[in-house]
């Protein structure tokens, strides 16, 4: 059992929880994820690690309430227990001094971006962050990411903050303005990662994306999370979740993430009754 020792509501559907898991906190690194199961009848869902505190022995998760499990998790309070919490899983981000790094986060994808931003800054990179959300009320971790960024840009769909439009517009402008970019990280909705990767491919800028396919065990056993990368089948849980953004078959990933959409709706409807 793993205790929720802190809970914050970051925006309407986005919540932050600090969970006591000392063994995992000791090992967690940027780019990795955990798998949790709320109770005896629960499903196993992967959530990327948004932060960790080795001294306090906590892992921070930030999640959007989209399905039955995340909605149920959102109703849990400080002091409540999560039945299972396993990790850190996946391969950590490759952190080194690349030079000039552009860090792009979309929606709740901003959460896993944060520890990578921090790690890259601490590794000596010049860090430019671009955060994209639908409207300013959905923006999370702005202050935290700003702290480790040399420059921070915001893009909102409705123009309620920063640039009106997409993160890719901001990236395009940086490129047009002659910014020399050594590496790009893009974490967010699949379509956002696809658009960013298509853009950077034109300019031959190395781009890392973090994928969040459907998983069951998270240890390389079931292959439910398989993605096609450069024509090869990879397991996001052990080979990823980060991959070369120029090689990922995003369309197949979108298709595979819709596999249980009807069942998810049914479960949500039943849970709501």
């Amino acid at each position: 059992m793993y205790e929720i020792i802190e809970k914050q509501v970051l925006s309407e559907n986005v919540k932050l929880m600090k969970v006591k898991a000392p063994l995992m906190a000791k090992k967690a690194q940027a780019g990795q994820f955990i798998i949790l199961r709320i109770d005896e009848k629960g499903e196993r869902i992967p959530l990327t690690i948004a932060d960790y505190d080795r001294k306090k022995g906590t892992i921070t998760i930030i999640f959007m309430e989209v399905g039955k499990t995340t909605k149920q998790l959102g109703t849990m309070k400080k002091g409540d227990m999560i039945l299972n919490f396993a990790g850190p899983l996946g391969t950590p981000s490759e952190v080194e001094n690349f030079g000039n790094a552009v860090m792009i986060g979309g929606g709740v994808g901003i959460a896993p971006l944060y520890p990578i931003v921090r790690a890259l800054k601490q590794a000596g990179n010049h860090v430019i962050s671009i955060l994209g959300v639908r409207n300013k009320d959905l923006l999370i971790l702005e202050k935290e990411i700003d702290e480790f960024s040399d420059k921070l840009y915001i893009a909102t769909d409705d123009g309620s903050k920063g640039h009106k439009g997409f993160v890719s517009d901001v990236l395009q402008k940086l490129i047009d303005d002659g910014e020399k970019i050594d590496i790009v990280w893009a974490i967010g909705p699949i379509i956002m990662m696809k658009v960013v990767a298509n853009l950077t491919k034109k300019y031959d800028i190395k781009t890392i994306v973090s994928l969040n396919p459907i998983m069951v065990d998270g240890t390389g056993m079931c292959g439910g999370c398989r993605v096609s990368v450069g024509g090869e089948t990879k397991f996001a849980c052990v080979d990823g979740p980060e991959f070369d953004g120029h090689l990922v078959d995003y369309d197949n990933l979108m298709l595979r993430n819709r596999r249980f959409i009807c069942e998810e709706e049914k479960a949500c409807k039943l849970a709501g009754e």
Partner: peptide
Amino acid sequence: TRVNMMKAYQFPEYDTPVK
């Protein structure tokens, strides 16, 4: 794994689906 360990045969009583 879905059917046995996660008991998808008892979906939606259990959360894990299979189709």
